[in-house]
Simulated assay, not measured.
Amino acid sequence: MKTLYIVRHAKSSWSYKGIADIDRPLKKRGIKDAHLMSKILTKEIEKPDTFITSSANRALHTAVIFCENFGFPHANLQIKRQLYSFSDGYLVKTVNALDDGFNSAIIFSHDHGINTFVNEFGDKPLAHVTTCGVIGIQFQEKHWKNIRRGKTILVEFPKNHK
């Protein structure tokens, strides 16, 4: 059995002019939400075996906050440039490539790919995963490369805790 947690990066800022999209930082609200959600999750789930993030500043910062609150070593955080894609294809490839020694993983990524993924692989339809939303899906398969539709075991959004 495998368990995957997918986190949409926290709220980012659009107020900086002239910087590339990949470099956009978190807003203060995003930082607060990342701390809120990660602290809530530390009480609801066991620490995932591996943490993987998009290379985008906003996703990376969200992942670092989660690492801090879960006590996961920053040096073990995997950064994947391909997760910056807004397609679920790279998310699926990343999940399928996970080491089978990991029974659980948490991945930090972006809007469109996450929405498509959780609706294709989870059993609860979701219209939209908000910033810093966390979705947990449990799979019966023994190998990440074989995952099919699983059971959605967690749906958490910051607005439900404010």
Rank of each mutant, 00 (worst) to 15 (best):
V7T: 01
V7I: 04
V7S: 09
R8E: 01
A10M: 01
K11P: 08
K11Y: 01
S12N: 15
S13Y: 06
S13M: 15
W14P: 13
Y16F: 14
K17Q: 14
G18I: 06
I19V: 11
I22N: 05
D23A: 13
D23S: 09
P25Y: 06
L26N: 03
K27F: 06
K28S: 08
K28I: 10
R29H: 10
R29M: 06
G30I: 10
G30S: 07
I31Y: 12
I31A: 07
K32D: 11
K32M: 15
A34Y: 00
H35V: 07
L36I: 07
L41W: 04
T42C: 10
T42W: 04
K43L: 06
I45R: 12
K47V: 14
P48S: 12
P48Y: 00
P48F: 09
D49T: 07
D49G: 11
T50R: 06
F51C: 01
F51L: 06
T53L: 02
S54N: 10
S55T: 07
S55M: 00
A56S: 09
A56Y: 05
R58E: 00
A59I: 03
L60C: 00
H61Q: 14
A63K: 06
A63L: 05
N69A: 03
N69P: 02
G71M: 00
G71W: 03
G71V: 10
G71K: 11
P73W: 04
P73L: 05
H74R: 03
H74S: 08
A75L: 13
N76P: 02
